[in-house]
């Protein structure tokens, strides 16, 4: 008999329950319209929540790598600039050597030019990006290249004196024969630019270059070092002209030295260009990695936004609906409260 009856409690309670639920939803939807994201992302995504966190981790890794790529890129740019400068210096000296007039006067001039070139070489090889030395390899905290007067000069003088019995530029120099000089240049002098003498006299750089992670899966060499062949050749060529006192040599012997210097500097220039090309490949790789990562980042960002985001229009429509529902339920509550038999009897 009671299947169709309703108690006053149930009647009055029905709109109250509705108001609670609807107001809770209204709060969530308002937040969603304001932020454009789900009110409770974790609850909304459930088992998919980890995927969003992983995607965010990927994005931030890409950002980190892009930042350090910028540093690697600027290191490579600075290295290229230094190498270009070294190339220019070498070409200048080479041009002067090729067109060298005979006589001690011209020899003295080129010796001074070569000496300046050595200083410039050490200046360039000791360049830093503000934090680490560009040509130090992984020994990036010490200036890799010795200034000419801070060791190498003395070593050359010692080698010369040991070979000939007198110091370069002194009176006996004119007695050195071309054959003697050729022998000296190919053996004792050349040894100064090979290991182990190179490592103690000229350079404290490491042979190991800096490796960078330029994308999540790519690691490439992003530096070079002062022990590479072109650096040795440039130092050797400049030292021949600057350190052997060529103005004091006999004309024929001097020609041997200048010829040899031309060959060595020529090789040095060519090898410097090749080194620049190698570094250019690295720069290119970084640029391409950056492009790829930026694309991946865009895709991931869209994926995250898809997962976390809500359609604000949809949320707004829900709010309108809910508000209407709330208003109706408020009106209803009032009406039900007024609806009593007492008012009519």
């Amino acid at each position: 008999m009671q299947s169709t009856s309703i108690s006053t409690y149930a009647l009055n309670n029905a709109p109250r329950l509705l108001i609670n639920q609807v107001q809770a939803e209204l709060g969530d939807r308002l937040q969603e319209v304001a932020t454009g994201r789900h009110a409770d992302v974790g609850l909304e995504l459930g088992y998919g929540a980890g995927r969003v966190v992983a995607a965010r981790a990927d994005i931030s890794l890409l950002e980190t790598i892009e930042r350090s790529n910028a540093i690697a890129q600027s290191r490579l740019d600075l290295t290229q600039t230094s190498l270009t400068d070294m190339e220019e210096v070498a070409s200048d000296v080479l041009a002067a050597a090729i067109a060298l007039p005979t006589g001690p006067q011209a020899a003295q001039t080129i010796a001074i030019e070569a000496r300046a070139a050595l200083d410039r070489l050490s200046d360039r090889l000791n360049a830093s990006d503000g934090n680490s030395y560009l040509f130090g390899g992984i020994n990036s905290d010490t200036a890799p290249f010795s200034r000419y007067d801070a060791g190498p000069e003395a070593a050359i003088v010692t080698a010369f004196t040991t070979e000939f019995g007198f110091a370069p530029g002194t009176a006996g120099a004119a007695t050195i024969t071309p054959a003697q000089m050729t022998d000296f240049l190919n053996n004792e002098f050349a040894a100064l630019f090979d290991d182990p003498a190179w490592g103690t006299t000229w350079s404290s750089a490491s042979d190991t270059n800096i490796v960078s992670r330029i994308s999540p899966d790519e690691r490439i060499v992003t530096s070079t070092n002062a022990n590479r062949v072109p650096m040795r050749e440039l130092a050797e060529g400049f030292s021949m002209l600057a350190g052997l006192g060529i103005d004091a040599l006999d004309e024929g012997t001097r020609q041997v030295v200048v010829d040899q210097a031309r060959v060595v500097l020529g090789n040095g220039t060519a090898n410097t260009t090749q080194l620049k090309a190698q570094l250019g490949f690295s720069q290119n790789s970084i640029t391409r990695a950056d492009e790829r990562m930026s694309l991946a980042q865009d895709l991931l960002t869209v994926a995250v936004a898809d997962d976390e985001g809500v359609d604000p229009a949809e949320a707004k429509v829900r709010i309108d609906l809910i508000t209407a529902q709330l208003e109706m339920s408020f009106a209803l509550t009032g009406q039900i409260a007024r609806l009593s038999i007492l008012n009519f009897v």
Partner: peptide, 19 residues
């Protein structure tokens, strides 16, 4: 997980500038 990803980022940064 987020802190772990930050550590991984910092580690990548350090590997690219170990000095």
């Amino acid at each position: 997980a987020a802190k772990l990803s930050e550590l991984n980022d910092a580690l990548t940064g350090f590997a690219n500038a170990p000095d």
